[in-house]
Design a protein around this nucleic acid. Structure first.
Length: 468
RNA sequence: GCUCCCAUCGUCUAGAGGCCUAGGACAUUGCCCUCUCAAGGCAGUAACCGGGGUUCGAAUCCCCGUGGGAGCGCCA
């Protein structure tokens, strides 16, 4: 039997990392088993669904590379089908019209709550024969009154629910529109979903869905209720830490494979391995190995993983991704070769592409302003000799590469009788404006001879004017 | 309130009764490497929620607490 999984977000809020992780698990499981991954947009709540949220889902999935084999399906386009099944339920006696008013329901609720009972519909209209004038009825599913439902969950094992705990849920509102739990059932059946992987906040909905599936004579899928993601403080995920659009991670300079790698390790592990490529994950991921407990989102580990993936990424690709980050800083560079060279020397010293861009300015524009502390320490009167001699030697270099530059710097140091640092640091500040950069030789190589000489002159001028 | 779920370092996790003096990773501290910043290497601090069982033996199995979470909508 072919595995068919689905990701079924509702576009009522922005797709965030919690949703992405369930999507990832579903996608991985389908890929691992050569199955089909379906994307379904659950937009039956027209009030709260937004075009923007739908677009974020689509763009986010695309950015992450979680490609769907089928869909996106939209529930709002399947209304005729839902009506058809409701009619079928009504005809078969699995559902009935309920004429209780919202006020009556509300009163019942309050009464039950006051009596410390679980609020449930009491079944008043279950056997009603005649309509009630003046009331547009809702349609309820006739849930079995006794017996138990066992949810066979791939993560939690068997979870048993008493039917007596369940009530007759509304499957169609008085305006005729179908409700969530019902639509899910019809969709999962029609789309032949074999594995329902979703957040464990849905575990309680599952027995109702199984009962409806049975009433339809449809097979029950394998369920896997994955634990939720908590905020860094252990509380519910909020905007402060992670409940933001996934696209924000792209804009902040995260690599999709890093975000995915981070999320997959939340509740899942494979020995002691921390860093995975997507190809590896597709090979080794198994939903049965997912933990039961919720886990807290840790931005620092995400940052570390992002850096690890940046270090492993191809410079050409990083260069392309660096470009928009630089543009956000007002730096335009169309030279892809140079962008790749910069990325190559910067890739093990940036946790995000955004940070890489911010620390790469000097490769693209002359130094506007020296870092105060760095200048005070390194752009001193004593440093002038080293700068001047370096400049002279650099000017004479015919081969401009790290090896020749390194040799020149070493010569300066030995001729002046000082350590390498006494030459490299002033150069670094002169060239980059700061005390931190890749090794001075590769930095200068990427920068180019002309700009190097210009900036050395500039720094000497700065020192002399500061002294005078 | 009722039902369901969950519980190992600060965080993510390994752990399927003896391999546990509880392992790895992030973070943190120190050291090494070093032209700076990183990266990397080495070392350190740090956990089985509590109580009862079962067993020769429990982080692992059972029960009861406690704590956290979810659901109980004409929301999804």
């Amino acid at each position: 039997m072919q595995v068919r999984t689905r990701f079924a977000p509702s576009p009522t809020g922005m797709l965030h990392i919690g949703g992405v992780r369930t999507a990832l698990f579903s996608w991985l499981y389908a890929r691992r088993h050569g199955g089909v991954f379906i994307l379904r947009i659950e937009d039956t709540d027209r009030e709260r669904s937004t075009e923007e949220a739908t677009q974020v889902i689509l763009d986010g999935m695309k950015w992450l590379g979680l490609d769907a084999d089928e869909g996106p399906y939209y529930q709002t386009k399947r209304m005729d089908r839902y009506r058809e099944v409701i009619e079928q339920f009504l005809a078969s006696g699995h559902a009935y019209r309920c004429y209780c008013t919202k006020e009556e329901l509300e009163a019942m609720r309050n009464q039950q709550l006051a009596a410390k009972q679980k609020p449930r519909y009491n079944g008043t209209c279950r056997n009603r024969k005649e309509p009630r004038p003046g009331v547009e009825p809702v349609i309820r599913f006739k849930n079995p009154l006794d017996g138990t439902v066992v949810v066979e969950d791939a993560i939690h094992g068997n979870v048993v629910f008493d039917n007596a705990e369940l009530d007759d849920l509304i499957i169609a509102r008085s305006d005729g529109t179908p409700t969530y739990n019902f639509c899910v059932v019809v969709d999962d059946m029609d789309m032949k979903v074999t594995h329902v992987i979703r957040g464990d906040d849905h575990l309680n909905n599952t027995p109702r869905q199984i009962n409806m599936l049975r009433a339809l004579g449809a097979p029950t899928p394998v369920y896997a209720h994955v634990p939720m993601i908590l905020g860094a403080d252990g509380a519910k995920l909020s905007k402060r830490h992670g409940a933001v659009s996934v696209l924000q991670y792209r804009d902040e300079g995260y690599l999709p494979e890093a975000l995915l790698n981070y999320l997959v390790r939340l509740g899942w592990s494979y020995g002691d391995q921390e860093i995975f490529t997507l190809e590896e994950l597709q090979r080794v991921f198994d939903i049965h190995d997912v933990n039961k407990a919720a886990s807290a989102f840790n931005p620092e580990k995400l940052l570390w993983l992002n850096q690890q993936h940046i270090m492993r990424a191809a410079p050409e690709r990083l260069g392309k991704l660096l470009r928009p980050q630089l543009e956000a800083l007002g730096i335009v560079c169309e030279d892809e070769g140079k962008l790749a060279r910069v990325a190559k020397v910067m890739q093990e010293r940036a946790k995000t592409l955004k940070e890489m861009a911010a620390n790469s300015r000097y490769f693209f524009e002359d130094v506007q302003k020296y870092d105060e502390k760095a200048a005070k320490k390194n752009l001193t009167a004593e440093a002038v000799a080293a700068l001047r001699l370096s400049g002279d030697k650099f000017a004479k270099l015919e081969q401009w590469n790290a090896t020749s530059i390194h040799a020149a710097v070493a010569e300066v140091a030995s001729e002046l009788g000082v350590g390498l640092g006494k030459v490299a640091q002033p150069l670094r500040v002169a060239i980059t404006g700061s005390a931190a950069s890749p090794p001075i030789d590769v930095t200068l190589e990427v920068l180019g001879q002309e700009a190097t000489l210009r900036r050395i002159e500039c720094a000497i001028g700065y020192i002399e004017s500061a002294a005078g």
